[in-house]
């Protein structure tokens, strides 16, 4: 038997011993471990999928533009959620499963403000503030556990139950929604077709882009952002240098909560506020965050677009199987890249 050519990483001793008696398996494992082969395979699969999507889209003609826009709208909402989730994970190593609950709280708080003032922007701002406040309170409780990741996660799960039940007590179980601001009511004509599209949904995409831009400026152009990035790389070193890490962490929690609150107000406007919405959005952002690579902001951005588009496509063409398709995509991504699209093996990359 010839040794394989190319730079295969060394396999475990046991694997190699087994492989020696099984040439086919050896070749297969050598194939799966060669990055260029994996990339080629991934590219081939992606090409096939794009071809399939394009041919399906041609069938419905004009309406595929709607699918595209729906996908981007969802992507915008998912990015608002996933960016906060992934920042908190990257910096504090906390898997905040109460993020969906905070989304709902932000949305409902905005609803109350809007009923009182009839001002969407004020409602969203106060909703975001409230969600950020809840988030930082949660952080203060989490600090009691001193970095025990598992118990922290379970605590956030407990918080999810409490939040969901309190929301039910305060706002009731009937689905409801916010009115879009007056300048975003109604629809616009899509260029080059006879289709109409709600203005507000397009505004959600713009909002997500704005949030991405603000986050980028914050992370790469400010002192706080520098501290956050340093904290992701090496929290111990940052604290030795005399930085008050809890303060940095607290501000990240506020930021993540506020983003979730904004997402809640936006989602509550074009979708609805209801029981169970928190879990739906949590699942979607989990998929985005895992697919993008935990702790990676760029990954969250890329994955939210992919997940949003795949979901919108699946809901249009295979409504019964839509969840299965979204999930299959996640499994495929993880099979090719175990740490997500842009996740590192050992530490997160922003």
């Amino acid at each position: 038997m010839h040794p394989p050519t190319g730079a295969a990483p060394p396999a475990g001793r046991r694997e190699r011993a087994e492989a020696a008696s099984d040439p086919l398996r050896y070749r297969l494992s050598a194939f799966s471990q060669r990055p260029e082969a994996r990339r080629l395979f991934g590219a081939a699969v992606a090409l096939l999928l794009v071809y399939y999507a394009a041919s399906k889209s041609l069938e419905i003609g004009d309406r595929s533009l709607l699918v595209l826009l729906n996908g981007l709208t969802s992507a915008g909402l998912y990015f608002l959620m996933a960016s906060g989730f992934t920042l908190v994970f990257g910096l504090a190593r906390v898997t905040n499963l109460a993020h969906g609950g905070i989304y709902l709280l932000g949305g409902y708080a905005a609803l109350s403000v809007q009923r009182a003032t009839d001002n969407w922007l004020a409602a969203t701002a106060l909703g975001a503030l409230f969600a950020g406040g809840v988030s930082v309170v949660l952080y203060q409780v989490l600090r009691l556990l001193r970095g025990d990741g598992l118990r922290e996660t379970m605590l956030t799960l407990g918080a999810t139950i409490v939040i969901a039940d309190q929301v039910l007590a305060k706002w009731g179980g009937i689905p409801t929604d916010l009115d879009p601001p007056s300048f975003l009511r109604g629809s616009i004509d899509l260029p080059g077709s006879a289709l109409l599209y709600p203005k507000f949904r397009l505004a959600v995409v713009a909002l997500a882009l704005l949030a991405g831009l603000v986050l980028w400026v914050l992370l790469y152009r400010t002192r706080l952002g520098m501290l956050i990035r340093a904290g992701v790389d090496d929290p111990d070193m940052v604290s030795i240098l005399g930085i008050r890490v809890p303060l940095v962490l607290g501000s990240v929690f506020v930021l993540a909560g506020a983003l979730a609150g904004i997402a809640g107000a936006a989602g509550g406007t074009y979708l609805s506020l209801a029981q169970g919405e928190d879990n739906r959005i949590l699942l979607a952002s989990l998929i985005v965050v895992i697919a993008g690579g935990l702790g990676s902001l760029r990954g969250a951005g890329a994955a939210s677009v992919i997940v949003g588009l795949v979901e919108a496509f699946a809901q249009t063409h295979h409504p019964v199987l839509s969840v299965l398709i979204t999930f299959g995509m996640l499994i495929a991504i993880l099979a090719l890249r175990p740490h997500g699209l842009m996740g590192g093996a050992d530490h997160a990359r922003l």
């Binding site: 556990l145 118990r151 918080a159 999810t160 139950i161 409490v162 969901a164 039940d165 309190q166 039910l168």
Partner: peptide
Amino acid sequence: RTETLVGAAFMAIVLLSR
């Protein structure tokens, strides 16, 4: 608010004991 109670009891136990 049974669920709140269940959730709060859960959080308390997580906080208090490994």
